[in-house]
Computed example of a mutant assay.
Amino acid sequence: MTSPGSYTSVDHSLGPVKGELRAFATDLEAEARGLGFCAFGIASAAGDDDRAARLDAWLAAGMHGTMGWMEERAHHRRSPQGLWPEARSVIALGMSYAPTADPLRLAGEPEIGRISTYAQGADYHDVVKKALKHLARWIVEQGPKRGLEDVGVKVFTDTAPVMEKPLAAAAGLGWQGKHTNVVSREHGSWLFLGEIYTTLAFEPSAAGRDSCGSCTACQDACPTNAFPAPYRLDARRCVSYLTIEHKGPVPDDLREGLGNRIYGCDDCLAVCPWNKFAEAAHTIKAFLPRAELTAPDLADLLTLDDAGFRALFSGSPIKRIGRNRFVRNCLYAAGNSGRIALMAQVEPLLRDDDPVVAEAAEWAKAKLKSSPSLADREA
């Protein structure tokens, strides 16, 4: 959502205006919490040289993999004002999706597909953006009532060239942990992020303070060694990237590391000690898991055609990757399962129209044939 115009009618150096903006920010936080946002903070829209340098170094190392859009719009991503020069402040917001069950509980059930917690409910893009647009309209409506004319706003969640995690940390929602995701003292690792850029010059919140200490739990938990160093993620080895963003065949040396993860990965988030403070009571109802996505059988998922895939994942973020990439993921999981019974679903996919799916089926078949004997598997 956008509202044209820039905030030029008021001298921000005047004390009364600063006082009004502080009061406005207080009311704004209350309105945000009423819309389901459990985390709120404000950051400056000005550039940050250190933040931009980290982005540039990450891109230069090629750690973004095939996510070409990150490099193509890096000039917009480096700072909020690089995307929108009129922006003065960033209102950073978070919605909790804290799980009601242990995200790692299916690690020992290879015939079941593991779907990341965030994708088991409604598509967060839709839920968060709807609330952001409501809040943005409220800001625009309230501005003139407070003597603040020509208030401009733009809303973002995930799909725009915005450095959401660093901005959330700068706004005090938490800090970027060693797994590079935002960690909150109150909500752990389970926050969907959204931003409202505005022409209003609100006073920034205190930035989040790193509280990871000497803990390396997230680094140790990664099944594909995607962290070359703390606070540095190589997306090319990350299960979430490989199962969601990566379009071609997954490199052979990383397939076993996928295990039975068929969409995303929660491992580095789930082991974070700060999650003991996260309460599922804050979770928006729309994000609660759908029963059919909490522990789906690989045998059923491998039979999905395009129509069946679309029906099953209607309203889910999983729908965005399409049937072929999803079935590819399920084939890797089948190959890793050691369950010879899945051969009945794997073999028809050897003739799939999509060459990536067909190749994944070949790999799964070979893996299953080289698994222990049937007697050992059934024991």
Rank of each mutant, 00 (worst) to 15 (best):
M1C: 05
G5W: 12
S6N: 14
Y7Q: 12
Y7H: 12
S9Q: 15
L14K: 13
G15D: 14
G15Q: 13
G15K: 12
P16T: 07
V17Y: 06
L21K: 04
F24I: 01
A25E: 11
A46I: 09
G47Y: 05
D48N: 14
D49N: 08
A53H: 03
W58T: 05
A60K: 00
T66C: 04
M70S: 12
A74C: 12
R77G: 11
P80K: 04
P80I: 10
Q81G: 06
Q81I: 02
L83D: 07
L83P: 01
W84E: 15
P85D: 14
P85E: 15
A87C: 04
A87W: 05
R88M: 11
R88T: 04
R88Q: 15
M95Q: 15
S96L: 09
T100K: 08
P103N: 07
A107C: 12
I115Q: 02
T117L: 13
Q120L: 02
G121F: 09
D126Q: 13
V127Q: 01
R137G: 14
E141R: 14
L148D: 03
L148K: 02
V155G: 07
K165L: 02
L167E: 09
A168T: 11
W175D: 04
H179L: 14
V183K: 08
R185L: 13
S189R: 03
E195M: 10
P204S: 10
S205K: 08
S205M: 03
A206Y: 05
R209D: 09
C212E: 03
S214K: 00
A217E: 15
D220W: 04
C222A: 02
N225P: 00
P228D: 13
P230I: 01
R232W: 11
R232L: 14
R236L: 08
C238T: 11
Y241K: 06
L242D: 03
T243Q: 11
P249Y: 01
V250A: 02
D253C: 00
L254I: 07
E256T: 15
I262Y: 08
Y263M: 13
Y263N: 11
G264R: 07
D267T: 11
D267G: 00
N275D: 02
E292G: 05
D300G: 03
L301T: 15
L301V: 11
D306W: 04
R310C: 06
A311S: 15
L312H: 06
F313K: 13
S314H: 08
G315A: 07
I318S: 00
R320N: 08
I321H: 13
Y332M: 14
G335H: 08
G335I: 01
N336E: 06
S337N: 07
R339M: 12
L342K: 00
L342D: 02
Q345E: 15
L350P: 04
D352Y: 02
P355D: 01
K365F: 09
A366L: 07
A366M: 12
L368S: 06
K369P: 04
P372A: 11
D376E: 15
